[in-house]
Amino acid sequence: MPYRNGNYCAFYVSEPFSESNLGASSTKDFVTYNLLRAWKAADSTFPFIDSHEKNYNVRDGSDWEKTLKPRLHQRLDNSKNIILVLSSITKNSRALREEIDYGINTKGLPVIVIYPDYSEKSDIASANGIKKQVKDLWDLLPKFRDSMSSVATFHVPYKKNLIRSALNDTDFMVNTMGKASAYYYSI
Rank of each mutant, 00 (worst) to 15 (best):
R59D: 11
T67P: 01
L96K: 00
N105Q: 14
R71V: 04
L72M: 03
D101L: 07
A38M: 10
L36A: 06
L96F: 06
W39Y: 05
A41Q: 14
V58S: 01
D101S: 13
F48A: 14
E53Q: 10
R97T: 02
S79W: 08
R37P: 08
L96S: 05
H52R: 05
A41G: 13
I104D: 03
I104T: 09
K40M: 01
S79C: 10
R71D: 02
G103L: 11
H73P: 00
E53N: 07
K54N: 08
Q74R: 07
V58P: 00
R59M: 04
F46C: 08
R71T: 01
K66Q: 11
H73Y: 09
I49Q: 12
T90P: 14
F48W: 04
P47I: 04
K91Y: 00
K66M: 06
R71W: 02
K80P: 05
G103P: 08
D63Y: 09
N105I: 06
S79L: 10
L84A: 11
S62D: 15
N92D: 15
L36Y: 02
L36T: 11
N55L: 06
K69P: 05
R37V: 02
G61P: 02
S51N: 09
L96A: 02
L36F: 12
F46M: 05
H73E: 05
S79F: 05
S62W: 08
E53M: 09
I82P: 07
S62M: 10
D63P: 15
W39A: 15
R94A: 02
A38Q: 14
